[in-house]
Structures are given as structure tokens and as C-alpha cells.
Amino acid sequence: MSTAVRGRTPLLPRWLTADHPLPWLAPMFAMILAFGIYPLAYSIWLSLHQRNRFTRVDEFSGLANWVQAFGDQRFIDSLLVTVQYTLTCLVFQVVLGIAIALLLDCERRGYGLLRALMTLPLVVPPAVTGLMFLLMQDGQFGVLSYYLKLVGLVSPEAPILANPRTALWGVMAADIWQWTPFMVLILLAGLRALPKEPYEAAAIDGAGFLQCLWHLTLPMLSRVIAVAVLIRTIDLFRIYDYVYAMTAGGPGTATETLSFYAGRVFGVANFNYAATLSLIMLVVLNVVCFTFLKLARVRF
């Protein structure tokens, strides 16, 4: 076959018509090298050095930045906030996603429109969503605050985003609103792909909705759920936009996530420590994802 190809294209250079895969892999390899491996290697180099921001001299500092991070209470706190944020949003998005997907998995008239409407939150830029929720939760002007005050859930003296006990929930509300439809769409696609036979057999045996859900739908959907959870976990763990738009990590450090903290350190030109924080984040995220993949037995 390769001889025939060469025969048909005598004007092409020899390397382009060869059977060897290298020419075809080279562009992708170059991209990975430029945009993946080099930045990673440079980050590792940065984390092992200390730059004097005033003399502009880099000095090898070994693991000093790494040691500093694990003794840095703000880093520990931001890691805890990130974990709390990730787990809480994930639980809400999975539970709501399954529930809404089950509700929308219907062929009756109008459901197609509802499914299409579910995509709307996904096209709004996260920073704009953050601003919308910032305004809705504003103690003076916010419609959400207004109603929560009416029912006594929020005190006028402690606006949602000014109270360390509620601020993270306020930020998470934006995330849950925006990304639950993503779960819904993925799960809906999974639901549509499930075979009908097991349900027919279960119906003959007299199984109810909950029994079908528990013994058929969720087990058969588990791989789809696992992939969706994996994608969202990665996204949630590096959350930045909503925090930036809504609280800037405050009040105090109540909503300061790891990526926001790293960004703030970067913003004051402490590139070495910021790189270290980013690498720690990468390591944590990789460990979590690989463990999850193992436990969920997901293979790509």
C-alpha cells in the first residue's frame, strides 16, 4: 500500500510518504513539549530557586519553597477550602444532575425545549455568572438576599458574602447553578444509551421506580457518572473565576481557594512560591484523579 501511495504522489518528499510514524507525531510532540513539558519543567525549576525581586538574581534554594508551603497556615487553609468547595459542589451537582436528568428523560411535548434551555447557563462566562450572583447576594440590592432576609435565613447585619460562615456557600451557589446543567446533559446522554430490556424484565417482575433506579439505572450509569465526576472534580479543584468576581478570597480568607492563593502570590511577583503552590495543586489533583480512576475502574 505504501508503494502505491508513493507511486501516486511522486512530488511529495520522501519523509512525508514514509511508513514511519515520527513525521506524523512530530507536530503533536512539539506542541506538548512547548505547552506542556517546558512550562512544567520551568515551574519545577522555579520552585527550586528563589529570585531576589530587587536584584533580579536567581539562587538555588532546594526544597525551601516546598518546606515553606507545608508550614504555611494560609496554604493549609486554602487547601481545606478547596476540598470543601470541590466536595460540596460535586455532591450537589451529581444529585441534582441525576434528578433533573431523570425528569427530563421523557419524550413528551415540550421536554426537548427544556433540555435545550438547560444549556443556557453553560454559555454564560463564569466571571459574568459570578457578578450576577454577587449582585443577587448583595445585602443592599440583592434579590436573593432580599428573600432570604424575608424568611429569616439571612440577617441584615451579616450579608451572605460578608459572613465567613455563609460566603463559601454564596460562591458555591453560582457554581452549582452554572454547572449542574453540564451534569444533566452528560447523564441524559447516558440515560438515552441504556438498553430497554432490563427495564422491561424488571417491570414484568413488578419492580418499582426506586428499585429500577437503584438496581438498574445507577449501576448501568456508573461509568458515565464517574467520567462526569472526574471532569468536574478537575474543574472544581482549580476554581478561580467565581472567587475573583465575588469575594476575592474574603471575607478574611473564608473563600480563598488554592488557585486563588497561588494567583495572589503570583500577583505580587513571588513567582517561585506561586509555582510551588501550583505544583502542589497539580500533585494533589493527580493523586485524587488516579485514585478515583482506580476505585471507579474507569478506563479510557
Binding site: R53, F54, R74, A162, N163, P164, G249, G250, P251, G252, T253, A254, R264, V265, G267, V268, A269, N270
Partner: peptide
Amino acid sequence: LPSWAEIANNVIPVELGKLLVGQT
């Protein structure tokens, strides 16, 4: 003070913010 930018942006307002909301 060359490091004042970091102090004024990343130290003082963070610690005062924690005080204002009762985290400190």
C-alpha cells in the same frame, strides 16, 4: 520599601479582613 506592594496587598488587608469578620 520595595516589598511594600506585597505587604500592602497581601498581608495587611488579609489579616485585617480576618479580624473584621471574626476569623481572628
